[in-house]
């Protein structure tokens, strides 16, 4: 499992190449990339700054990846999350999961993202025409994370 927190941008293709390097048993890679939007909660967003809790962040992301590996049959996974000031269109987060078959990769990728949204210590502050504001947590993110609690490990 590769976990990174960084200010620099990332390249999805390069990350997937690194994930698959030397592993010809990989039959599937599922990935998710989250981007900074120019609109949120009805306001224009000019930029956002991501703060995190150094130490706990890496530990929490590692725990999520380990939980996914315990639940599905995975070969490897990469999680990259950026911090610092980002502009609309900038990539924020990448999750890529390699497995033999697609079902495990799709499910583990979705699980890691849903869990990251509620358990990894990152906070967004947006710059809007009315000034700066901290982004509030969404109930829909709690619901998305909770849906994994009552499911069996393997997808149907």
């Amino acid at each position: 499992m590769k976990i990174r927190v960084q200010t620099e941008a990332f390249d999805l293709g390069a990350e997937i190449d690194a994930l698959r390097a030397g592993r010809l048993d990989v039959g599937a890679v599922a990935s998710f990339v989250g981007y900074a939007r120019d609109i949120n909660d009805g306001s224009d967003v000019r930029a956002m700054t991501l703060e995190h809790y150094p130490g706990m962040t890496e530990k929490a992301l590692g725990t999520l990846a380990d939980e996914a590996a315990a639940r599905w049959t995975l070969i490897d996974a990469t999680v990259v999350h950026r911090v610092g000031r980002l502009l609309p269109g900038d990539p924020i987060v990448l999750v890529a999961v390699a497995s033999r078959h697609r079902g495990d990769a799709f499910a583990a990728c979705a699980f890691i993202m849903d869990a990251l949204k509620t358990r990894a210590p990152f906070w967004k502050k947006e710059e809007t025409p009315a000034g700066e504001r901290w982004v509030e947590a969404r109930a829909s993110d709690d619901a998305a994370a909770a849906r994994w609690a009552d499911k069996v490990g393997r997808p149907d």
Binding site: Y53, H81, I92, V93, L116, F122, K124, V135, E136, A137
Partner: peptide
């Protein structure tokens, strides 16, 4: 011990 708001990453 850390105290913080509900997280909003991703």
């Amino acid at each position: 011990v850390a105290i913080f708001p509900p997280v909003t990453g991703g």
